[in-house]
Simulated scan of single mutants.
Amino acid sequence: MRVLHVISEMGAGGAEAVVAGMVRSGGDFGWESGVASGGGHRAEALRAQRVPTYDLPVARRRATGVLRAVAAARRAIRGFRPDVVLAHNVSASLVSRLAAGRTPVVSVFHGVAETDVRGAARILRRTSRAVVAVADASASLLRARGVAVEVIPNAVFAEPPRVHRGAIRGLLGLGPDVPVALCPARLEPQKRHDVLLEAWTLVAGAVLLLAGDGSLRAELELLAEELGVADRVRFLGTRCDVPDLLEATDVTVLTSDWEGMPIAVLESLAAGRPVVASDVDGVREVLSGGGGVLVPRRDPKAAAAALAKFLFDSNARAAAAEAGRAAVERDHDPHTQMKKYDELLRTTVGGRR
């Protein structure tokens, strides 16, 4: 079965990690995979592995941008000749449907802001032969708006760290005993780094690593200065070495306003790192089995208290690490995820759906 993944970009995000993992594992299920995207380090890595990759400009919310993306997607489909297109997220689904002709399109809904759900549902109803949600919470939002959805939870295609804890801490200028928190998230409004920085004013004696870049970087750097925490916060920019950063870390934190089922959380649990996260959407599903602490949205005091618990209490860290690893192994196994996708896509290609 020839599967063409269509996605806006193949950089450091969670959906991109899912695509890269599915492409690497697809051969075990008889897939021949290709990827059409706006590029990024994961696309370059796949290209080096001789995976067919195609350039696809990001479809901005303007007609000219969508038309350019559709033209590029049509070239990719003609070149790769897939049996099915697997479109990741809403804009990719729209572009794929306009370009695919008779080739079926299956959409993977990784999540959108609550204000965008109605529009997303309308597009998915009209573009997709089948729709997959990565979390029960996301599926419920779509079903309430008349979209038939199958839930296939995200899995973590774990990559081992390339260097040991002491070495990566040395490269980051961190002492061997300093408590470290990591926030692996784009510097965009959804992720609410402002809440995290306010929480950090209540956590003394530790360092916060912000791995990601985005439109709010300058504003957040200024806020860190104003709050008096700039000397304890490191803006690392976009990173391709998250497994190494996790090796250097004691706890991971996400103070987002909304999430689907973030791969950053799954990667952290698989690495034995407890997670402090906002009590939202798919994060609640992941952490319900242990592995961390959920805190109310936009509550810096609650986030600070949970961070301090894991930063300074080794027993709490160890207990959460054990629970988190068990939850990932039980509920987010890559083979189980791929088997479900394989069954869905083959049914779709066979025309019985």
Rank of each mutant, 00 (worst) to 15 (best):
V195T: 15
V195G: 04
L196C: 07
L197F: 04
E198K: 07
A199D: 04
A199V: 11
A199S: 08
W200R: 01
W200C: 01
T201P: 06
T201V: 06
T201G: 04
T201N: 06
L202F: 06
V203L: 04
V203H: 01
V203A: 02
A204V: 14
A204D: 15
A204I: 13
A206Y: 02
A206I: 01
V207L: 08
V207Q: 00
L208Q: 04
L208R: 03
L209N: 01
L210W: 12
G212A: 13
G212V: 10
G214K: 05
S215D: 13
S215A: 14
L216E: 14
L216P: 14
L216Q: 15
R217I: 11
R217K: 15
A218Y: 13
E219A: 15
E219I: 13
L220F: 13
L220I: 12
E221N: 13
E221L: 13
E221Y: 11
L222C: 12
L222Y: 11
L222W: 11
L222E: 15
L222S: 14
L222G: 12
L223N: 11
L223V: 12
L223W: 08
A224R: 00
A224H: 05
E226W: 03
E226A: 09
E226P: 03
E226N: 08
L227A: 08
L227H: 05
L227P: 04
G228K: 00
G228E: 00
V229K: 04
V229T: 05
V229L: 08
D231W: 04
D231A: 09
D231P: 07
R232Y: 08
V233Q: 02
V233T: 10
R234H: 11
F235D: 09
L236P: 09
L236R: 04
G237Y: 12
T238G: 11
T238F: 12
R239N: 11
R239Q: 14
R239G: 12
D241K: 06
D241F: 10
V242W: 02
V242R: 02
P243Y: 01
L245P: 10
L245F: 08
L246H: 05
L246S: 06
E247P: 07
E247S: 05
E247C: 09
E247Q: 08
A248G: 00
A248Y: 00
A248T: 00
A248S: 01
A248N: 00
A248P: 01
